[in-house]
Simulated scan of single mutants.
Amino acid sequence: MTYQFMQPYTFKNGVTLKNRMVMSPTTTMSSFYDGHVTNDEIKFYDVRAGGPGMIIGEVANVIASGKGFEGELSIADDGDIDGLSRLANAMKRGGTKAILQIFHAGRKSNDSILRGEQPVSASAVKAVFPPDSQTPRELTAAEIDEIIVAFGEATRRAIAAGFDGVELHGANTYLLQQFFSPNSNRRTDKWGGDRDARMGFAKAVIASSQQAIDTYADRPFLLGYRISPEEIETPGIRLADSLAFVDMLGDSTVDYVHTSMGSAHRTSLNDKTDHEPILKQLVQQLAGRKPLIGVGSVEKPADAEAVLEMGADLVAMGREFIREPQWVEKIVDGDEASIRYQISPSELDELAIPRAMQDYLKGAFYSVMHFTTDPSVAVDYQNEAAPMEGFEKKMS
């Protein structure tokens, strides 16, 4: 069978993907204590490369204060480049393009992870979820400038390491989102205020990364941006806010927009009278200015086709590529019947899943991984938030 998602895609800057399937960021939590790349991470991506047109690698912090969890990649120092180069080479096996997601966790961290330092954010406002979140320290204007520069420096390092692009992680309630959110940003200086003013930090980070690309890239290099369309806190980001933000991205220098949702068919979490899928609304807002990567509970070929039919340009899968590294290859070989849609705990080593990641999948992500040992019915995240979106509490 001929699938639309198997057709190549070329970005406006000339980067061409051999197909429209994207492996979305899947956190392995397996870096060394200092953020250096481990052989476990390299093996994990090498096993999954070659099939999808593009792999977006797990998030890397751009500065020490941005670390959000143990086992997290670092791109905060030139000493990280050699290891990241090995990671990029593994992702690029078989012609797959390699993107590295970069971020600052902001208040989604704690003083244990930061080795005694208080987490920071746009304002000194504690996150609602999880309940044991720590109150962050409000960033000074000078520190904000330092972080903006750090994103540019991280982009330079990604270029040097051989990646084909970087993705700015503005989703899952991390710092870029925290500056846009009326929940976490109560500032009265130029970095706070009304909705347009709260976009200022994201605009500055985009400009910093773009300047690094213009200065250092000797080849077409992608700049992506990931967003979470809504927050469930009050006050918080609502869909109308994200549509305005996406309109800004449509006029910016980014090469693509990537959603973060538990279901590609998600409708508004906050406005239950709005029955139009968010993905379709984002497509309409972008109006062809930027390609959109749709994601969320995509498992079967028909699921991927449905995302493209809603107007997305590319389709991302995360959990399914964890379960089935050869998803694309099996479709190419006409061997769809052998695709894994469940995963056995006994297969985790065979699938090159690092031990730290195994514990996480069997713990916080157990309900979304389709373990063969899980008797419960899979949850449909069309109308509620999923664990992988950074929420600690489901909507009822």
Score class of each variant (00 low, 15 high):
Met6Thr: 07
Lys280Gly: 15
Gly288Lys: 05
Ser263Glu: 07
Glu58Gln: 11
Arg86Trp: 00
Ala202His: 04
Ala337Tyr: 03
Ile63Lys: 09
Ser367Ala: 13
Leu348Tyr: 02
Lys190Phe: 00
Leu139Arg: 06
Glu276Lys: 14
Gly262Lys: 01
Gln210Phe: 02
Gly51Leu: 06
Pro52Met: 06
Val205Asn: 08
Leu114Lys: 13
Ala217Arg: 10
Ala161Tyr: 06
Thr234Phe: 00
Ser109Ala: 12
Asp349Asn: 14
Asp333Gln: 12
Glu320Ala: 11
Ala306Val: 09
Pro345Val: 02
Gly14Trp: 03
Asp333Leu: 11
Phe69Leu: 07
Ile293Ala: 11
Ala127Trp: 03
Asn110Gly: 05
Gln101Asn: 05
Arg340Phe: 01
Ser252Ala: 07
His370Gly: 05
Leu279Thr: 13
Gly71Leu: 03
Ala244Glu: 14
Glu384Cys: 10
Gly236Tyr: 06
Ala212Val: 01
Gly200Cys: 05
Leu100Gly: 11
Asn183Val: 05
Lys190Arg: 14
Leu361Thr: 06
Ala356Val: 13
Arg319Glu: 08
Glu230Tyr: 01
Asp46Gln: 13
His36Tyr: 01
Glu231Ile: 00
Thr96Arg: 05
Gly53Gln: 14
Leu279Asp: 12
Pro291Met: 09
Met29Pro: 04
Val254Tyr: 10
Lys18Val: 10
Gly152Phe: 00
Ile293Arg: 12
Met21Gln: 08
Thr267Gly: 12
Ala337Lys: 15
Glu305Met: 02
Leu269Thr: 10
Ile55Lys: 08
Ser228Glu: 02
Gln326Ile: 00
Gln7Tyr: 01
Ala352Gln: 10
Ser346His: 08
Arg226Cys: 13
Lys394Ala: 09
Glu350Trp: 00
Glu299Pro: 10
Gly294Tyr: 02
Leu222Lys: 06
Asp40Met: 01
Phe321Lys: 12
Glu276Trp: 00
Ala244Met: 11
Asp303Gly: 00
Leu239Arg: 13
Ser65Cys: 12
Ile232Leu: 11
His36Gln: 12
Thr188Glu: 10
Phe371Ser: 04
Leu249His: 05
Asp251Asn: 11
Gln210Tyr: 05
Phe103Ser: 13
Ser65Lys: 15
Ser133Lys: 10
Asp80Asn: 14
Ala385Trp: 00
Asn13Asp: 12
Leu314Ala: 04
Ile206Pro: 09
